[in-house]
Design a binder for these strands. Sequence first.
DNA 1: CTATACTTTCAGTAATTAATGAAAGTTTGT
DNA 2: ACAAACTTTCATTAATTACTGAAAGTATAG
Lengths: 169, 169
Amino acid sequence: MKLDEAKDKFIQQWGSLGSNWGINRTMAQIHALFLITEELLSAEDVMETLKISRGNANMNIRTLIDWGLVYKEYQSGERKEFFRGEKDIWKVTQRVMRTRQRQELDPMINVLAQLQTVESDKKNKKEVEAFTKQIKSIKSFADLADRSLTKISGSEENWFLKTFMRFMK
Amino acid sequence: MKLDEAKDKFIQQWGSLGSNWGINRTMAQIHALFLITEELLSAEDVMETLKISRGNANMNIRTLIDWGLVYKEYQSGERKEFFRGEKDIWKVTQRVMRTRQRQELDPMINVLAQLQTVESDKKNKKEVEAFTKQIKSIKSFADLADRSLTKISGSEENWFLKTFMRFMK
DNA sequence: CTATACTTTCAGTAATTAATGAAAGTTTGT
DNA sequence: ACAAACTTTCATTAATTACTGAAAGTATAG
């Protein structure tokens, strides 16, 4: 396979992976491009390579920066902004975990906490008990996931690999 | 909060969580309904509770069965099918992991394997090396994730909790 | 201060994804 | 074998989500 073909294939596959996981295809493709590009890229470069509009490129690069997957850098002598992708796949994973934990797990946990107290009367006592029990069990699980993610996404790769490999044996 | 209000809130929240993770809102809502319903439900029940069409209910219940999150059961004396949701949140997690591993991680790993061999000529030698190195590093990570998921999704909750809690300490 | 080089926003539009419901298919009881 | 009771499919329609591009906004150099 030729290099350009391989790069394109990687970008497409990463894009489709992203879109299956609720991350828009273009954002995932831009991220893929940054993952396999050593050099700094400008918004223009991204637009041209992926054939997307200025607005689209700008918005998604911005989101990638928010997620901590892309960094803004300045080239001396150049007026425009350049960007560099985080290459370390372990760091990438940690940052994706963190972002999604904040955006999705934490709100879920809040709602679950609220749902633990439901009014009960003589008519539906049994039903309320069953509901509350199930919500509590989901909440416990979500709390465990939350603590785990916090620990994992704050840990060094070395620690993680060492301990995790032992765990997985 | 009233019970019905709480149930509805749970269904909505689970639906929105799902849709953020690339699972269609209705499928996630049906799943939520099954998670908090002790009794058997018919397709009709689901249609009425969630105000969705017959086709929609049927297709998504089917997918939930494929994922192993809902079971088909027959009521004696009744001609129509009834369904029961898997309540154990640990099992639910394992099955979601398994399904997504099959549907998304495995294809990604296959593509990464292909991308490891890229033709090189004197002009782009350096570039090809850098690309291959990065792909290899992503592939190793994906392989680790794959092995971990296989192990976790085949393990007992007890084993998992015991070992994982030690790991997380 | 002002012209230029850039970045950001956002209303309108396009593309994608999901839902409907009627028709076709299947199963079961008599 | 037939009819009733139910399930599945799928073409059409609706809803959602993402993209474009022009206009507005901002920063910098001279």
